[in-house]
Amino acid sequence: MLSIKNLHVTINDKPILKGLTLDINPGEVHAIMGPNGAGKSTLSHVLSGKAGYTVTEGSVTYNGKDLLELAPEIRAREGVFLAFQYPVEIPGVSNIYLLKAALNAMRKHQGLPEVDAMDFLTIVKSKVKLLQMDEKFLYRAVNEGFSGGEKKRNEILQAAILEPKLCILDETDSGLDIDALRIVSEGVNSLRNAERSFLMITHYQRLLDYIKPDVVHVLADGKIVKSGGPELALELEERGYSWLEGQAA
């Protein structure tokens, strides 16, 4: 589904990713952990197509397509979803409007007709319930005045409605208290299925107690330096990252 080969990325000529290789199969959940400045967020931004990053070497293949060639909105329509570390506030645009516009953009891309208004409401309301959100959130401006936890929940709500094939969670757990973390995690777990893959970027092992990964990677200095099963996360929790820095994958 996603194959990243020897990816090198610079920001203003400064190398950030230095030969990152990663393969994710359908239905797998991968966690990427690593110290600050290792390039975790850069990876999520490059995959979703944010401007300001230069790929100097390597490739990213997504379902057989060269992902890096696609505009950000095409990636989204092809099923790549980024849950932002810092979701953006958009005054004047209601949540429900964005959800509907996004869903219809996706359906149009897939050659499907626009979603019926009643059907749409039914879908949205069931997902809102799943994430234990108040329906009022739908009619508020996107993320405006939301608490940190509400913003993160709102990201997962979008994912639940857009049903992506690849879901990138960029530090979705940071800033959440334990209750919010549990709700967000339950939302994520409810999205797991045999086809949908996840790439979770996180600082904290705590998230992995709630969302069980298939594979854990350690990203340090722009490369994956170690990969393993869920037990690797526990080891990191105990030993920190320093013993891995400077190691090759």
Binding site: S48, G49, K50, A51, A71, P72, E73, R75, A76, R77, F81, L82, F84, P87, V88, I90, L98, A101, A102, A105, M106, H109, Q158, L162
Partner: peptide
């Protein structure tokens, strides 16, 4: 970019 990442051109 946020709106683009949700599929809008």
């Amino acid at each position: 970019f946020y709106l683009q990442s949700r599929g809008l051109d």
